[in-house]
Design a protein around this nucleic acid. Structure first.
Lengths: 290, 290
DNA sequence: GCGAAGACCTAGTTTTTCTAGGCCAAGAAT
DNA sequence: ATTCTTGGCCTAGAAAAACTAGGTCTTCGC
């Protein structure tokens, strides 16, 4: 009598994934966003799971859903489970094409720091196939298909590539108009929407309380702001590691010699385990100079 | 620019599951068995995964498939991942219906040890809904939907409920024919196909080298063999903890007073974490007497 | 009171998954 | 040596699952 009784099979995996995403992100719409489906699809999957379990996992409220007790108890395990699944997928990716490396970087870093180094990199590592994706938020290396991240953050979070120092810069033609900090009030002060705090921080550190009120265009892309500064459109709060070349080659100058450290740094993180191709890329980037 | 680039989505989860099962069990057919689908379905899922990764994970050979290097590298992560997924599902089950408990037991244990105790158990724990499934092999509590297992095994594997002691037993009417061990050769010696080693072990321990050759019917269900012994069909190698009541109530007697320990024991394992309902069931079983 | 968010429902469509049945290769058995 | 058995592959069609679309409802914030 070795009749293996047909095991009562578990719930559909996709329903579990939908639940996990919805619970972690706190809403069906956000989950739908992450999973690239419509919110209705997520609602259905979650409902299917709740039907399977015979119990509700979310409290439905008018302005969204919130996890109930049951849901709160399973969420940690669910997240661990899908972390593991994602780790397996990444491992599979890495094993299947070990020479294909994917870097995630802040748009500004991708365009201003990484992009100039890429040609040399590809020359030094011709056998590696390097892709770059720009994004605002650092991805989770355990989950997302990236091998390396380059973002600004706390120096403790990873390997520090450069410290983050800011200082006003502008086209050489404009430098003459800037004798002292107060002159800034008479010029356009370019800024990046993601780094809105840069000007106030610098003014506070460099000029003390006597900070002039500033005005000027706001860009959503730092590289664009840099280009505008080169074009003479105004004074930009420059992040030194991103405009090294423009400074060295004279397209930009720093009218005030008062750099201010932001306390952050350009951080590199590597996907674990680090295999040879990734280690080579990381080494090449560490040593890269412009 | 907060355009989250549509993440390159991973492979279908079901394909990963098919791969994991096939790799762990070493064959598409066995995986199909476990997943309750046809082997063709598993083959397709695995192929889909290999296509996604762009690389083969199995070597196809005429007498089956074997993992190749790539597959071997991802299998550990895959197994961990699906262990976690299963753990989450079990947690969900347990949280959703905490009073529904499912015991997995060896068929002999289910029928001869557990079954007589169940009425008392249900009386003592009326709020618990106790199910029992008989199976030959202990299930993996991390993966399969059981809360408790009752199997014979090494005492170190779990909590020992009873030690496993064997001794020949028969109907009282037959006992007169058995004055010494050698008399066994003249009677039917009932045995269970899953415990073929019992007679040889006992003979060796109890009778030394002078073990007579035995003959008799073989049963695939131990409870059936016990019933036949009660009916006077022959001498059965009895596991004491399974036939306590028959001995006490005189339906069976032990003609030789030479019990032999098999070195195994009746072992109880509990699914972690142990919640109140399961703890109550375990306590009730520990204290249960016939 | 009105618009925006967020979720639900249902019907219908699209995609995925599964089965069935035939085929093939290589060991094992006769 | 021939036949049988095992285990996998393939394809077409069927079945099941998942998704979308569009309409509705409720509550919050203005």
């Amino acid at each position: 009598m070795s009749v293996h009784p047909p095991r009562p099979s578990g719930p559909p995996l996709n329903a579990l994934r939908a639940f996990e995403a919805a619970a972690r992100l706190g809403g069906f719409s956000r989950a739908a966003d992450e999973l690239c489906v419509t919110p209705g699809a997520v609602a259905q999957q979650v409902k299917a799971l709740e039907d399977w379990a015979g119990v509700a996992l979310f409290d439905r409220q008018a302005q969204g859903v919130v996890l109930n007790d049951m849901g709160r108890q399973v969420l940690p395990l669910a997240t661990r489970a899908f972390d593991q699944v994602a780790a397996m997928v990444q491992e599979l990716r890495a094993v299947a094409s070990p020479n294909r490396l994917h870097i995630a970087a802040l748009p500004a870093v991708a365009q201003l720091w990484l992009s100039p180094r890429l040609p040399g990199l590809r020359r030094a590592l011709p056998d590696l196939e390097i892709s770059v994706t720009a994004m605002e938020q650092p991805p989770n290396l355990e989950r997302d298909p990236f091998d390396m991240t380059l973002f600004f953050g706390d120096p403790a979070e990873g390997e520090q590539i450069a410290d983050d120092v800011i200082l006003p810069v502008c086209a050489p033609a404009l430098a003459g108009c800037l004798a002292e900090v107060a002159d800034l009030a008479r010029l356009n002060c370019l800024s990046d929407s993601a780094w809105a705090g840069d000007w106030p921080l610098w003014l506070q550190q460099a000029a003390g309380a006597e900070a002039p009120t500033l005005r000027g265009p706001v860009f959503s892309l730092y590289a664009l702001a840099v280009q505008e500064a080169v074009n003479g459109a105004g004074v930009l709060m420059g992040h030194r590691c991103l405009i090294e070349r423009d400074l060295r080659e004279g397209r930009l100058v720093a009218p005030f010699d008062q750099p201010v450290a932001t306390g952050k740094a350009l951080i590199m993180q590597l996907r674990q385990p680090v295999r040879t191709p990734l280690a080579r890329l990381a080494a090449a980037l560490r040593e890269s100079r412009l």
